[in-house]
């Protein structure tokens, strides 16, 4: 709970601001994760493109192995996204895992957090499995080729926007701190003069 503030009183008792209801919205993070998944699915890279990319530059034997890894990746994605979701959501999750692990050799804190922020709680074995699948795929294709592929296909890595507002503004993190006139006298208690003039 936030401490009592002047601006809180002004919001409650004056008529100059909009009355906002700040009661806690349940599941707002869950809703947000769904929205992020929806936005991610629109970002350019598709599962078909990944499948095509993983098979086009390889001989037959390697193609079979790659196909097996891609299947395993989809399975791991299914475990992460949840079984109640359709094929589209599973493929989108697999794309996310492919992007997340394409330059990683293990599931670190950052990757765990990124997956959780997209899908919520997930079985760690599925993350391990997907990391291992992606590592196998990348090993046979070459890291730089995969990197180039992701850079060109994903709009997230290739933003079409102008410069960010405020990028060059020098922002200060300084904040107001206590600036007392005097410290509490050492004893903490001043003897008050007691009047004996009854």
């Amino acid at each position: 709970m936030s401490p009592p503030r002047l601006t809180g009183a002004l919001r409650s008792f004056s008529t100059v601001s909009k009355k906002e209801d700040f009661t806690e919205q349940l599941n707002d993070l869950k809703t947000k994760r769904l929205k992020r998944r929806e936005l991610f699915a629109r970002e350019g890279l598709t599962w078909q493109k990944i499948v095509h990319f993983c098979s086009e530059h390889q001989d037959k034997a390697k193609q079979q192995a790659a196909s097996q890894e891609l299947k395993s990746l989809l399975l791991a994605a299914k475990q992460i996204v949840g079984t109640e979701h359709g094929q589209e959501a599973i493929e989108s999750a697999a794309i996310f895992l492919f992007e997340t692990f394409h330059n990683k050799d293990h599931v670190g804190t950052e990757e765990t957090r990124a997956i959780k922020q997209m899908f919520g709680p997930f079985p760690s074995s599925a993350a391990e499995a997907s990391c291992s699948c992606v590592a196998q795929l990348v090993a046979s294709l070459g890291e730089s080729r995969v990197e180039d592929f992701i850079q060109t296909q994903s709009s997230r890595h290739n933003p079409q926007r102008g410069s960010t507002f405020g990028r060059n503004i020098a922002f200060s993190y300084d904040c107001y701190t206590l600036d007392p006139l005097e410290d509490l006298p050492c004893s903490g208690i001043h003897e008050e003069k007691v009047s004996l003039d009854f």
Binding site: L178, D179, P180, L181, E182, D183, L184, G188
Partner: peptide, 13 residues
Amino acid sequence: QEDLWKRLSHSCR
């Protein structure tokens, strides 16, 4: 107690 005193003194300032 010390902290509250500082806050009151800061408020005075």
